[in-house]
């Protein structure tokens, strides 16, 4: 009996160690970034790495002042939204609301539902075909949907036991070391944020999800948030995990929640 109690207490302790509510997790997260960059305002994190580096920020602003390279793609995404009947799918017919609502935890399926996830389901329903998860149509349309919510705030809610479990799994993924380099997402985007990795300045994870899908000069096009996950996993020499799988969706759930209260922006350019 005594042994059982010890075991139960032990398990309770383990879960307790990992499980904290979003607000307190985010507060610790923000405090960390404040400690490494005391002069950067919270609201400025919506600009990602450009909040940290004046030199590349000038370049960023010049690009935004001209004709940003994603402008045509986003416009095309708006046309495709109608062409493929997305306005006929309940989850998407109010695009601004859809961007703010996702990702959320669905109690019925006990799974995280992402914006790209409902887009794929809607596309299948309307056209009978499969939609990719990383680039091309889905990135263009998702960018257009997010543009409709520009100025609103990221607002991920974690308020049930199932939601908490999915969030905790995403959190463990983010902080866990993996791949041949034995690194975690946090190693680069939390502890080393603002430092240089080859030609790049490592962006803070705070604000990572305000401008997705993003246009990336290196890609020469647009990509979804989960396309980027695949790229970073490869750089860590870990085998990329399928976009829109449960594991990647849980990661996104945690990752987006850490940007709660930051403005969603249409300035989706990154180097």
């Amino acid at each position: 009996m005594k042994k059982i109690i010890t075991t139960v207490v032990g398990i309770g302790f383990l879960v307790g160690a990992a499980s904290a509510d979003v607000a307190s997790d985010q507060k610790a997260f923000i405090d960390h970034f404040k400690s490494i960059q005391p002069n950067v305002e919270f609201a400025d994190y919506t600009n990602g790495v450009y909040a940290y580096d004046a030199g590349s920020r000038d370049q960023f602003e010049e690009i935004l002042d001209g004709i940003p390279p994603y402008e045509d793609a986003v416009e095309k995404g708006g046309l495709e939204f109608v062409k493929f009947g997305f306005n006929k799918c309940d989850a998407l017919k109010d695009p601004a609301a859809a961007r703010v609502k996702h990702p959320y935890f669905d109690e019925a399926t006990q799974k995280v539902v992402t914006l790209e996830g409902v887009m794929k389901a809607c596309y299948l329903k309307q056209t009978g075909k499969k939609l990719g998860s990383k680039k091309g149509k889905i990135a263009r349309m998702s960018a257009w949907i997010s543009d409709q919510a520009a100025g609103e705030k990221v607002n991920v809610k974690v308020d049930t036991a199932g939601a908490q479990a999915a969030y905790d799994e995403g959190k463990a993924f983010f902080y866990g070391k993996r791949g041949q380099f034995n690194m975690s997402c946090a190693d680069c985007h939390v502890y080393y944020a603002g430092k240089k990795a080859r030609a790049d300045i490592l962006s803070p994870a705070l604000g990572h999800t305000t401008h997705v899908p993003m246009y990336r000069a290196k890609w020469g096009g647009m990509g979804t948030l989960q396309r980027r996950y695949g790229g970073c996993l490869k750089n860590m020499r870990a085998k990329p995990i399928s976009a829109q799988s449960e594991t990647m969706n849980n990661l996104e759930y945690f990752h987006q929640a850490m940007s709660n209260d930051l403005e969603i922006t249409a300035d989706r350019y990154r180097k």
């Binding site: 610790a28 902080y175 993996r178």
Partner: peptide, 21 residues
Amino acid sequence: TQTVNATTQTSVISSSPGPRF
């Protein structure tokens, strides 16, 4: 050897790592 190391990482992750701050 790679798979042995990945298995070690797996057992570390199953203890649900969190931030160092």
